[in-house]
Simulated assay, not measured.
Amino acid sequence: MVPFAGFSMPLSYGDVGAVASHHHVRTSAGLFDVGHMVQSNFRGATATAFLEWLTPSSLSVLAPFSSTLSVLLNERGGIIDDTVITKHADDAFYVVTNAGRRERDLAWFRAKLAEWNASEHAAAGKVALEVLEDWGLLALQGPEAAQYLQNLTTFDLTTLTFGRSAFVPVKGTKLHVARGGYTGEDGFEISIPPAQTEEIAALLSKSPVQLTGLGARDSLRLEAGMCLYGQDLDEDTTPVEAGLTWVIGKDRRETGGFIGAEGVLKHLKDGPPRRRVGMIVEGAPARQGAKIFAPSSSDLVGVVTSGIPSPTLGKNIAMGYVESGWHKKGTEVEVEVRNKLRKAVLTPMPFAPTRYYRG
């Protein structure tokens, strides 16, 4: 167990190492306890407009029971947090945010709700926030996840494609099940009322499913090219720099109207000063904070934000930011690892192929 965001979190379970757990998720199925994350409901007649003010996403055109990755932005266009937003209806949204940003996010939500509900928008209806305290959240991930869950429910999971969610009956309880996850594999994120969390966790963790800790979670998400807030994203980074331009709705790029729009639209128009990239590093794994240099030069062009030896590829992979112009795939750079410059080649992400279920 290790401390994380005020919780004690499992790094690994029993004598199963992180690499073995990683491979098990890629070949079979693993269960992650992610109940530390913050689950919230936003409800009210103007909930869509409110969340479109807080984020650059086009939520008004999102179909009911569809999800999108999004970002909460500060006034400069920097990322307060990354989040998954699920639309249940025009007046009801389910939002999951990061545990490490809990205090910042909830204070931001409450301040902006007070502002919104005191404005002319409230004439069309106020918005309310409900934080789902103590609710469980489990991520069942891997190529055997769907078959395992299907054996526990009468709901036809083949109708639930990537990015869709539904209330699914399991053991007499309707669970909110969203198809997706943080590993690049097919899988589900399952929200569970407090009283049923332990029972459902026990049900979902029988063979072939293995309980999987934070060690494997980090290597799986990095192979999938996914960002970790606080390492790969922060309040001084815009979604354009972070390679998350796709979360900005096409209509929002024209109309703006969201907090931080000025900074984001400027980066869209003029290009960002730096960009998030993936790279394969020779010799030794580059870790967070490793400096990236132009080849055979003392010119600093970037910094590594995450790096590991990839269990799937058998190569050292890393993610980081480089100055614009140095970001094209195939570009060679040098990374300082253990006081030695190592050759690295910029590589498209995800590093490992994703296997989402799209029907």
Rank of each mutant, 00 (worst) to 15 (best):
K171C: 03
G213T: 11
I317T: 04
T46H: 02
D90G: 13
S40V: 11
V277I: 15
S297C: 04
Q150S: 15
S324L: 11
F7E: 14
T68P: 00
G307W: 05
G163C: 12
S297M: 11
K112Q: 13
L341A: 03
V322N: 07
N316S: 12
D270C: 06
L72F: 14
G278Q: 08
G17N: 15
R287G: 05
P194M: 11
F65K: 11
V303P: 01
A111I: 04
G184E: 13
D82R: 03
G163V: 12
V168T: 09
P295Y: 05
L54A: 01
L132E: 07
A224F: 00
A224V: 04
H121C: 04
L300W: 03
L152W: 01
D156H: 06
T331Q: 13
S296T: 06
A178I: 03
L11Y: 15
R101M: 09
L300D: 05
G330P: 01
H22M: 05
S66P: 00
P143L: 12
L62K: 12
V127H: 13
D82E: 14
P311A: 10
S219L: 03
L346A: 05
D90M: 08
S324C: 08
S12E: 14
L72M: 12
R104S: 01
I259W: 04
A284Y: 07
T48G: 01
L73A: 03
K269F: 04
E282K: 03
A290Q: 05
K329V: 08
V131D: 02
A49R: 09
K315S: 07
L214W: 09
V96W: 03
E185D: 10
Q141F: 02
A216I: 11
D270I: 04
S207W: 10
A166V: 04
A224T: 09
R274G: 01
Q147D: 15
G77L: 13
